[in-house]
Design a protein around this nucleic acid. Structure first.
Lengths: 199, 199
DNA sequence: CGCCCCGGAATGAATGTTCAGTCCGCAAAT
DNA sequence: ATTTGCGGACTGAACATTCATTCCGGGGCG
């Protein structure tokens, strides 16, 4: 398996998978439909991926890599928490807004048992070591420990931020709400003020 | 159809549907499994509901009615925006936390085409008339118009609140984060501060 | 230089499984 | 005895996966 002969074809399958899962969800997209959109035979999928589940996981990995690259591009490493938070928030919002299929796929994935297990692992891992990473979790932890942010569990802060961000991004993608760069910055400000310890 | 003979059985089917959809999602829960958990025959479901889709909708309606009752219980109608917001937020959080199956079902439902269409209708409806309703939308609108809240689209405020709330509730239900009454009030405070126009 | 053959990638019809929804005989109630 | 609700075997459709076959490019032989 995975004697990848034609990387073009592999990519086409992954792209089709992301688009269709974003539109229809995992259980509502037959592999035959994926094959049709990718322009390959039904059986060809199984030359590149062991089964449907593996295909999903590899599609996720592909998005995660792309997103990570985009978000950390120009990350203001040594600067203030404030500036780093804004960078994180706005870059992530932009990624979601300009890649609606990726966004839709990620929503599906993180709501599935796969995604939940993955998150559980991430949380465990974070609790043990990993004090130097470039994640929003560490950034928030830094803010709490310095007394800048409210004294709530780090995960509550993070969950609020992600929840708010993804909810607004979703409404934008569905056309429920207009969103532009200044408004995204306002939202970033709002959530910053939400985290701040009461003056 | 719906020659309601045994309301007990009807309720058992709805309860089983809610639990299973919450756990497994719409497309991954066969009607046969619903029947088994409800303790009825596979065919009996179709005595009470026209088809699977109808069953889902009626399950949603049942939850919505129950939630509406719970949340509006003791609503401080004439009081300050602040107090009304806190009531809304905390009652909703409590409902989600103590009814995890309902919460899981609602997530699934609102992510499905049904739920998206429903929300689109709600938004349209809100834009036309409905200036006197007891929804969080009207409350936020009131805050914006009085200059108390930031001048962002009402839907952005609402989306942030719901996004943050449901995200935190989900993490609580999954056991990722502890949550108690004081912490919920802190979260309510945080989101209130996020909405407030900059002092 | 042209022809043929061969290895392996690609294909899509076939397979076995699972599903939503139907139907029919039974049993309890009147 | 008749009616009425019930269960679960049943049906046709749709699914994931497989596999016998086709297709293609390149390398060796005449």
């Amino acid at each position: 398996m995975s004697h990848q002969t034609d990387p073009e074809k592999r990519r086409a399958i992954i792209t089709a998978t992301i688009e269709l899962i974003a539109e229809r969800g995992f259980h509502a997209t037959p592999t035959s439909m994926i094959a049709a959109r990718a322009g390959v035979g039904a059986g060809s999928i199984y030359r590149y991926f062991a089964d449907k589940e593996t295909l999903i996981h590899e599609a996720f990995a592909e998005i995660a890599a792309r997103m990570h690259r985009t978000i950390l591009d120009g990350y203001p490493r040594g600067e203030s928490i404030r500036r780093r938070f804004d960078h994180f928030f706005c870059h992530m919002a932009n990624f979601f807004m300009s890649n609606p299929s990726d966004f839709g796929f990620l929503r599906q994935y993180f709501d599935s048992p796969f995604g939940i297990a993955l998150r559980r692992d991430k949380i465990m891992e974070q609790e043990c070591h990993n004090r130097d990473c470039e994640s929003i979790g560490c950034l928030v932890q830094e803010g709490i420990e310095s007394g800048l942010f409210k004294d709530m569990p780090m995960l509550v802060h993070v969950s609020m931020i992600f929840g708010a961000l993804t909810s607004v991004a979703r409404d934008y993608i569905l056309g429920f709400v207009p969103l532009d760069t200044p408004l995204i910055h306002s939202i970033s400000d709002s959530l910053w003020e939400a985290m701040l310890r009461r003056a």
